[in-house]
Design a protein around this nucleic acid. Structure first.
Lengths: 302, 302
DNA sequence: AGTTATCATAGATAAAATCTATTATAACTT
DNA sequence: AAGTTATAATAGATTTTATCTATGATAACT
């Protein structure tokens, strides 16, 4: 295994095409072909399925490339430290449930790296995808919540995938509503208060087991159910239809807008929000920095 | 930069002798010489001072090799993951003040890696050395405490060295005494109670500024002062001379022995014990695992 | 003064990486 | 159906890199 080979493999994966990747790397296509074959031979794995219209990554390959990327990232770090010149883009990938504080920290991280070339991904997605992203090393970090109800299932899923969960804070359940909603008059809300209004929740795809829901109490009955993928859409419906959604209550006016307010929900439950990491690969400096920012931000909010 | 070169450089540093290292690496000495020169040329640094009786590492070189080791460690991880065979020894270095829970976690980590080839270092040492060890990447992690008194100074030192501090727990000051000490009768102790007895503290070398003391209240006067380096020695003197030492109070009977007990100290102060990391290099899986063990252990004690 | 241990240099040799040219194959195009 | 295009694999030549052997230089020992 050489750094060159790993870099080649990663580029091929990104390009999805050996010929194309060879051009990017300023080498001839057969050289690249043989470099890839070398890795495959050395570790007796298949990184790519070859077709006549490019290549596709195998599951095995996707995992391997996760490790490879991590290693290359670290090699670039040394390169930069000792040449001064930035080598390749700074890359950062995060998968998260829909929390504005996660976006806020993401923005803060971006600001600190504004000068450099970068490629940052903020994936607000479904709970199961978050876990899968981190497990397959598509993202280095994921943010989600645990509570009494989903804890056992999620923790088992995490264990199975060699992932660790680190709590950030415990939140009492809140309800997000539009500031002009009739519900806004009350200081706190009960489940009965919510009954007449449309409930908004996030789409959970094929893994729409209750356990992977983004909202607690998803097993509760509701007459009017609206399911969306996008935070802005959710907020639009919240305001437009006097809807509500149950959440952690950590709110950022700048990001969510002044039209959204939160009210405590009168139930005996909690949400423990934290981040997940793939333990077997360690933590990169950038991820470490992101975690620090998260913590700093949350401290301020309290 | 290639992994080969880095590996060569690290071996040379370990051996302190190019000829010798070449034998270990099963290559001829001139090959090794030129490999090292290549790195030095590429990054315009001097890794080693050559003398006629081997080589010595430069300060620059020591830092570079810190990064190199980290990278190689991660490369080995991949190698192991995909060949099954263990590649090189598992290495773990920790520097810490004298806390038995740190040793306990160290032991637990060892147990989980008992089957493999390993080289683990537990450096119970002086506060400033802990900071330096982590800053120079001789250790990946360090454990020390902050309190009102030393916080500003230590945090500045950490910032200057690109180190982060993460709190583990806050402890109320306790006093360690022998179980047969006259002081053992009282449920809690005041500073006046301690006056007549010998105070034990850890040697802090040339950096013996108050701020780097391992014990809080080190500025307090004491008539009988005993200064040691070794935890066992400290405990022996504690028992033999009815001495005392001020500490966090986290105690482990198995490790410290049943002859040592702790009593709360009546002062308005705290110790915030946490770990320090070099932020610019990320965290290795093993260090991550160690941190998890620390947290688990401390949770149990509470 | 001779011996030993050490690292550096020179030039030869071996290994590897890369190149050009070509083949094979599936998917489009006309 | 025949031709064209895009893609990856293979073969063999060529270049580049890594390593080797032999030797030189120098300080520290004996």
């Amino acid at each position: 295994m050489t750094l060159k080979q790993l870099n080649y493999a990663v580029t091929v994966a990104e390009t999805g095409n050996i010929t194309e990747a060879a051009k990017k790397l300023f080498i001839a296509q057969p050289s690249l072909t043989s470099a890839i074959q070398e890795i495959e031979k050395e570790y007796n794995i298949t990184l790519f399925n070859r077709t006549k219209r490019g290549i596709t990554i195998t599951t095995e390959g996707s995992e391997f490339l996760g490790y490879a990327r991590q290693l290359l990232e670290q090699a670039n770090l040394i390169e930069e430290r000792y040449t001064g010149k930035p080598v390749g883009k700074t890359k950062f990938y995060i998968s998260s449930q829909h929390y504005s504080f996660v976006v806020e920290a993401f923005v803060a991280l971006l600001k600190e790296h504004g000068g450099e070339k970068y490629e940052f991904h903020m994936r607000e997605t479904q709970t199961y995808d978050i876990i899968e992203d981190v497990a397959r090393m598509r993202s280095e970090i994921g943010v989600l919540y645990l509570n009494k109800f989903n804890e056992t299932v999620i923790k088992k899923t995490l264990r199975d995938n060699d992932l660790s969960f680190t709590p950030l804070f415990k939140a009492k359940p809140h309800v997000f509503i539009g500031k002009d909603s009739p519900l806004a008059k009350k200081k706190s809300l009960s489940l009965d208060d919510l009954k007449p209004y449309p409930r908004l929740s996030y789409e959970q795809g094929t893994h729409n087991s209750f356990y992977f829901s983004e909202e607690i109490l998803s097993t509760q009955d509701s007459d009017k159910d609206l399911v969306v993928c996008d935070r802005a859409t959710l907020f639009n419906l919240l305001i437009g239809l006097n809807g509500y959604t149950i959440c952690s209550g950590v709110i950022n006016e700048k990001l969510n807008g002044a039209n959204i307010i939160s009210r405590p929900l009168k139930v005996d439950d909690y949400m423990e929000i934290g981040y997940i990491l793939k333990t077997s690969v360690g933590i990169s400096p950038l991820t470490l920095e992101y975690i620090e920012i998260l913590k700093r931000l949350l401290k301020k909010k309290k």
